[in-house]
Amino acid sequence: MGDWSFFGKLLLGMGLFLALMGLVVLLMGKLFSIGRLPGDIYIQKGNFTFYFPLVSSLLLSLILTIVLNLIFRR
């Protein structure tokens, strides 16, 4: 077969990355009010609730684009 140790290291790395990203998301929720910015669409009528974080998504995309460009810049 192939080299299974590489596959194991890859899975372990991805798991650690996902755990770290989960921790970052939890901390961001506590420290910053992202998700309830002006421009996010929130509709509540009776027992129906619709929430679309439009501005929050755009802001998160912009931040991730800047960070990833700084990391992967050559």
Rank of each mutant, 00 (worst) to 15 (best):
Met14Lys: 05
Leu70Asn: 10
Gly39Cys: 02
Met14Asp: 09
Thr49Arg: 13
Phe72Tyr: 07
Asp40Thr: 08
Ser61Cys: 00
Val25Arg: 01
Gly8Pro: 00
Val67Ala: 12
Asn47Arg: 15
Leu10Asn: 04
Ile66Pro: 01
Arg36Gln: 14
Leu64Trp: 05
Phe17Trp: 10
Gly46Met: 10
Met1Ile: 09
Tyr42Glu: 15
Arg36Phe: 08
Leu23Tyr: 07
Phe48Asn: 12
Arg73Gly: 02
Thr49His: 02
Gly39Pro: 02
Ala19Pro: 03
Arg36Trp: 12
Ile34Tyr: 13
Pro38Gly: 09
Phe32Val: 15
Gly22Phe: 02
Leu64Glu: 02
Ile66Gly: 02
Thr49Trp: 03
Leu59His: 07
Leu16Ser: 10
Leu20Ser: 11
Ser56His: 01
Pro38Ala: 10
Val67Arg: 00
Leu16Gln: 11
Ala19Leu: 09
Phe6Thr: 06
Leu62Cys: 02
Leu54Asn: 07
Asp40Leu: 05
Pro38Ser: 10
Lys30Trp: 15
Gly13Asp: 06
Met21Trp: 04
Leu37Arg: 05
Gly39Leu: 03
Pro38Ile: 05
Val25Ser: 00
Gly8Glu: 07
Leu31Arg: 15
Asn47Gln: 13
Leu62Ile: 12
Leu26Gly: 08
Gly8Asn: 07
Gly15Leu: 09
Asn47Ala: 13
Ile63Pro: 03
Arg36Met: 11
Leu68Glu: 09
Ile66Met: 07
Leu70Gly: 11
Pro53Leu: 05
Phe6Asn: 00
Ser33Pro: 14
Gly39Thr: 11
Ile66Trp: 04
Leu27Gln: 14
Ile34Gln: 05
Leu12Trp: 09
Tyr42Ile: 12
Gly46Asp: 14
Gly15Asp: 03
Gly46His: 13
Pro38Thr: 08
Thr65Gly: 01
Gly2Val: 07
Phe17Lys: 05
Ser61Asp: 02
Leu10Gly: 02
